[in-house]
Design a protein around this nucleic acid. Structure first.
Ligand SMILES: [Mn+2]
Ligand SMILES: [Mn+2]
Length: 816
DNA sequence: GGGAAGC
DNA sequence: GCTTCCCAACGCTTG
DNA sequence: CAAGCG
C-alpha cells in the first residue's frame, strides 16, 4: 500500500463522526492481527476504538498460554481501513514487507469492567475478550510501569476455556483458517449450537445511490433480530444474546417445526399493523398483550439439511431460503430489490426504518459486524443517560432529561417526551424512583423552560432516535425507543457455545422490557425471573441483574455451604436502601420444586417450612426474591442439632475501625494456634469478620457455644479495652462485641460468598490468615472482584466442611 | 415480591 | 382497572 | 415478664 493512499485514508478517518452511532457504546468492536514480515517479523494487533485502530506491534505474536507475557509496543493509530488490509508494502516505504491478516473478529471489554474502554485504555489496563478465530477469550493488555518505556505494554492470555498450557507460536498457526487475500472462510454452523448473527455496519459517507452492481437491498424491519435452529423435533428461536423466544413466539415456532429439513434461519420478528407496517412497541408488549400480525421476516439461511451454508453467496442462500419457507404461516421471505435509492425513498415515504444493502456474493460470518451489509436509515440514534425527568399533571412524567458523558463531564443534550405509551411511562417512572437524587447531576444550570425537574443518578441509558443535532448541541425531534439492555445475558454463561458476549444497542433487541416475564433454564427447571433491571443498589446503579449474574457465577462454590441447611430468608425486594424483612416459612405460592423442611415453631405453634437451597435453580429463585444475603443454619438436615462448624462473630461497634477488627482477629488467630487449631476467617461483607472452626457435626450447639465462649473469654482478657462479651449494646461502649451466642440452633450468619445489602455490593469473602493485616481492605471484595480472586485462591473455606477439630484435646492446651 | 382487598 | 395494603420471624438472653 | 438482640 502506498503511503499516499495511507494518508488519504487517514484523513478520512479523521473526518468520521466523533460520536457516531455504533462506535462509542456498542460494547463490541473489531480487531485485526496482521502478520507483518517487515525487516523483522512481527505481529500487529489493532483494536477499533473511537473511530481509529489503536495499534501495538507484538514481536513474538500473541500467545494463548497464560504464562507468556508478550511484549506489545504501542505504535501510532491506524485508519479503520487497515482492518482489511493485507498485501505487500513496497520497498522504500515505512514497514516495507508482506502483511497478511493473521486473525480478525470482534472484541469487547471483559465481564465486570466498570469503566469505559477509553478510561481503561488511558490507564493502560485493558481486560479484553476476543471473538476471533484464533484469538478467543479473555486477555489482559496492560501498560508496563517502567516510566522510561512509556509505550511498552504486555499482552497476556487469561486462564479460561480458550487458554492452553502448551507453548504457543503465532507464526506456526497460519493454518487453514487463516484468511487469505481478504477471503476469510466463515465459521461453519450447526443447529446444535446457537449462532451469533452477522451484523450490518453503517457508514454515513456512503450514498446508497452509488451502490449498484453487486449489491441488493432489503427492508430494514423494525422488530427483534431472531435466529431459528431447527433439527428433528427441536425448533428454537433466540435473540442475538441467546435469549430464548421459542415459547413467546409460539405461532412462529409451531410453523417452523414443520420444516422437513434441518435448518438455521436468520430474520426479524415483527408485529404488523393493518397497513403491514411493523409496530415495535406492540412487539415489546407481545407477552402481556399480543397485538398485530406476528410475522417472522426471514432473510438468510445459514444451514440446510446437514450442510453449513455460511460460505455460499448470499443470493444462493436466499434462493434456498425462499423455497424452504414457502407457504408457512407466520413466516415471510424478505424480498430484495436492485434499486437501492428507489427502495430507500419508498421506505422513507412510508415511515419505515430504513434499508439494508447487502453484497450479493457475500458469505455469512457469524458474530461479525460486516461491511458487506450496510444499513441506511434516515434517523440517527444514540444511547443517552437518563438524568431525570420533568413532572407533568396529565402523564406519569412529562419528558426525560437526557445527558451524555463528555470527557468526564455530564452534558445536557435535551429532553425527550415522546415514544412511550402511558403504560410504558408508568413502568419507567417506577424504575426511576430508586435513582432519585436531590440535586442536579449536571455541573451547570439547565434550562427546562420552567418545568419541574426530578433529578436522577445518571446510570440508566435510553436508546433515543433523533433527526439531527442543533447548533447548541441538543437533539432535534428525539423519540424514546427503549431502555438499553446492556448486560451480557445469563444464557451465555450456561451454554458457553455461543460466540458473542456483548450486545449492540443500536440494533434493538428483546430481553428485558419491564413487566416482561423472563425465565432461566437451570437444573432442568424454568426459574421465573422478574424485574431484572430493578435497581438494588441505587447509589451504584447495581441491578438485580448483577446480583443474579454473580450468584450464577459463584453457584458451584457457594452451594456446598447451603445444601441441606434450613435458611432464614432475608429479603430486600426493594433494594438495600429500603427496609428488608425476614421470612422463614415458605408460602404455598412458591414453586413446588423448591425443597423445604418442616420444623415446629413454639411461638406460633405450627410447622414452619424452611427453604433449603439445594441447587442453582433455588439459589437464583432466591436472588429473584430479593435475597441479597443468604443465611443458612450451621447444621444440616438429618443432624439438625449438631452444627458443622462453630462461628466466632467479631462485631465492631460503629466507632471501631476496621484496623481494630483486624487486631482482634489476629489475637484469635494467635490463641487458636496456641491450642492447635487453624480456623478459617472471612469478611462478614459488612464491617466485621467471622472465624469458622470445623466441627464435622461431632458436637451439640451447646457444646460449640460453650467452647466458643471460652475462646472469646481468653481473647477478651487479652484485649480488655478493645473487646467485650456484653450482649447489651449500651453496656458495650465503643468496644468490639465477640458474639459467641451465634452458635445456637436456628441462628444464622451470612454465608461465605454471599452478597450483603451494603454499599458497593460486598461479598463475605474467605481470606488467608496472612491477608489479615493492617493493609486488609474489606471493600476490595465485591460481586465484581470475587471471581478473579477465586481463580487465584480457589475456595479457601473448603476446610470448614472438612475434618472437625477435637474440642477435648484443644481444651487440654488451654492455659491453666 | 406478590396476592388480596379496596376504591 | 388501578392503587393501596398487607404480609412475609424466631427464640434465647437479660434485666 | 417484657424488651433486647442478631
Ligand atoms: Mn508493523
Ligand atoms: Mn457479625
Amino acid at each position: 500500500m502506498a503511503l499516499q493512499e495511507y494518508n488519504k485514508k487517514r484523513d478520512f478517518s479523521k473526518t468520521t463522526e466523533p460520536y457516531g452511532e455504533e462506535a462509542p457504546d456498542a460494547g463490541e468492536w473489531r480487531f485485526v492481527v496482521q502478520r507483518h514480515d517487515a525487516r523483522k517479523l512481527h505481529f500487529d494487533l489493532r483494536l477499533e476504538m473511537d473511530g481509529v485502530l489503536k495499534s501495538w506491534a507484538v514481536p513474538k505474536g500473541p500467545s494463548l498460554n497464560p504464562s507468556d507475557k508478550r511484549l506489545a509496543v504501542h505504535t501510532e493509530d491506524h485508519p479503520l481501513k487497515y482492518l482489511h488490509f493485507q498485501g505487500t508494502i513496497p520497498k522504500g516505504n515505512y514497514g516495507a514487507g508482506e502483511m497478511t491478516i493473521w486473525d480478525t473478529g470482534s472484541y469487547s471489554l471483559s465481564q465486570g469492567q466498570q469503566k469505559s474502554i477509553q478510561d481503561l485504555y488511558k490507564k493502560g489496563d485493558l481486560k479484553l475478550t476476543f471473538y476471533g478465530t484464533k484469538l478467543r477469550g479473555d486477555f489482559a493488555l496492560v501498560k508496563t510501569h517502567y516510566q522510561n518505556k512509556q509505550n511498552q505494554w504486555l499482552l497476556i492470555k487469561k486462564e479460561d476455556d480458550y487458554s492452553i498450557d502448551l507453548d504457543y507460536d503465532a507464526n506456526l498457526h497460519l493454518g487453514e483458517n487463516a484468511p487469505s487475500a481478504g477471503k476469510k472462510s466463515p465459521l461453519e454452523v450447526s443447529p446444535k449450537r446457537q449462532v451469533s448473527p452477522m451484523l450490518a455496519s453503517r457508514d454515513k459517507a456512503i450514498d446508497i445511490g452509488t451502490l449498484k452492481k453487486g449489491w441488493l437491498f432489503e427492508f430494514k424491519w423494525d422488530g427483534y433480530r431472531i435466529l431459528c435452529n431447527h433439527e428433528d423435533s427441536n425448533t428454537s428461536l433466540y435473540s442475538r444474546n441467546g435469549i430464548s423466544y421459542t415459547d413467546l413466539f409460539t405461532p412462529i415456532t409451531d410453523s417452523l417445526s414443520q420444516l422437513s429439513f434441518s435448518a438455521i434461519i436468520d430474520g426479524e420478528v415483527v408485529s404488523l399493523n393493518k397497513n403491514g407496517l411493523p409496530q415495535f412497541q406492540w412487539l415489546q408488549h407481545y407477552r402481556e398483550e399480543p397485538k398485530g400480525d406476528l410475522v417472522y421476516m426471514v432473510f438468510d439461511l445459514l444451514y440446510l439439511d446437514g450442510h453449513s451454508l455460511t460460505h455460499m453467496p448470499l443470493t444462493e442462500r436466499k434462493e434456498l431460503l425462499r423455497s424452504l419457507v414457502e407457504d408457512l404461516p407466520h413466516i415471510r421471505y424478505s424480498e430484495h430489490f436492485t434499486n437501492g435509492k428507489g427502495l430507500y425513498q419508498e421506505v422513507l415515504a412510508e415511515g419505515g426504518e430504513g434499508v439494508i444493502a447487502k453484497k450479493a456474493d457475500a458469505a455469512y460470518h457469524p458474530g461479525i459486524r460486516t461491511e458487506s451489509w450496510l444499513k441506511f436509515k434516515p434517523r440517527e440514534s444514540l444511547e443517552a443517560l437518563i438524568c431525570g425527568y420533568t413532572a407533568s399533571e396529565s402523564r406519569p412524567f412529562g419528558s426525560l432529561i437526557l445527558g451524555l458523558q463528555n470527557e468526564g463531564v455530564l452534558t445536557y443534550i435535551g429532553n425527550c417526551g415522546t415514544g412511550f405509551s402511558h403504560k410504558r411511562q408508568k413502568e419507567l417512572l417506577e424504575r426511576f424512583q430508586a435513582l432519585r437524587i436531590d440535586s442536579s447531576p449536571f455541573l451547570g444550570k439547565i434550562n427546562l423552560a420552567g418545568k419541574q425537574p426530578i433529578w436522577m443518578n445518571p446510570v440508566l441509558m435510553a436508546e433515543v432516535h433523533y433527526a439531527e443535532w442543533t447548533d447548541s448541541g441538543r437533539l432535534r425531534q428525539p423519540v424514546f425507543k427503549a431502555l438499553r439492555q446492556d448486560k451480557t445475558p445469563f444464557e451465555l454463561h450456561i451454554h458457553s457455545d455461543t460466540q458473542s458476549e456483548s450486545s449492540d444497542r443500536s440494533d434493538k433487541q428483546p430481553g428485558s422490557a419491564p413487566g416482561e416475564e423472563n425465565s432461566l433454564q437451570l437444573d432442568g427447571i424454568n426459574v421465573p425471573i422478574s424485574n431484572l433491571e430493578k435497581i438494588y443498589w441505587p447509589k451504584e446503579g447495581i441491578q438485580k441483574y448483577d446480583l443474579i449474574e454473580y450468584y450464577l457465577s459463584i453457584a458451584d462454590i457457594l452451594l456446598p455451604y447451603l445444601k441441606g441447611r434450613p435458611q432464614n430468608l432475608h429479603r430486600h425486594p426493594e433494594g438495600i436502601e429500603k427496609e428488608g424483612f425476614y421470612q422463614k416459612d415458605t408460602p404455598d405460592s412458591f414453586p413446588k420444586w423448591i425443597k423445604t423442611t418442616a420444623i415446629y415453631s413454639e411461638s406460633s405453634d405450627k410447622q414452619i417450612d424452611y427453604m433449603l437451597c439445594q441447587d442453582e435453580a433455588t439459589l437464583i429463585y432466591m436472588a429473584n426474591l430479593g435475597c441479597i444475603e443468604i443465611n443458612p443454619w450451621h447444621s444440616k438436615m438429618g443432624n439438625l442439632d449438631r452444627p458443622d462448624y462453630m462461628v466466632i462473630d467479631i462485631d465492631p461497634s460503629p466507632k471501631n475501625s476496621f484496623g481494630e477488627v483486624v487486631e482482634v482477629a489476629q489475637s484469635f488467630h494467635e490463641f487458636l494456634k496456641s491450642i492447635g487449631i487453624e480456623g478459617y476467617c472471612k469478611t462478614s461483607g459488612s464491617s466485621g469478620l467471622h472465624i469458622y472452626l470445623p466441627l464435622d457435626a461431632q458436637y451439640t450447639y451447646e457444646e460449640a457455644r460453650d467452647f466458643c465462649k471460652l475462646i472469646c473469654t481468653m481473647v477478651q482478657q487479652n484485649l480488655p479495652s478493645l473487646t467485650t462479651l456484653e450482649r447489651r449494646i449500651k453496656s458495650r461502649g465503643d468496644r468490639i462485641y465477640l458474639d459467641y451466642l451465634q452458635n445456637r440452633p436456628g441462628q444464622t450468619i451470612a454465608a461465605a460468598y454471599c452478597v450483603r445489602p451494603q454499599p458497593g455490593a460486598p461479598v463475605s469473602t474467605p481470606l488467608l490468615w496472612k491477608e489479615i493485616n493492617s493493609k486488609l481492605d474489606k471493600n476490595d471484595f465485591t460481586i465484581y472482584t470475587i471471581n478473579d480472586r477465586i481463580k487465584k485462591h480457589k475456595d479457601l473455606f473448603k476446610g470448614v466442611l472438612g475434618k472437625g477439630i477435637d474440642i477435648e484435646s484443644a481444651l487440654e492446651k488451654f492455659p491453666d
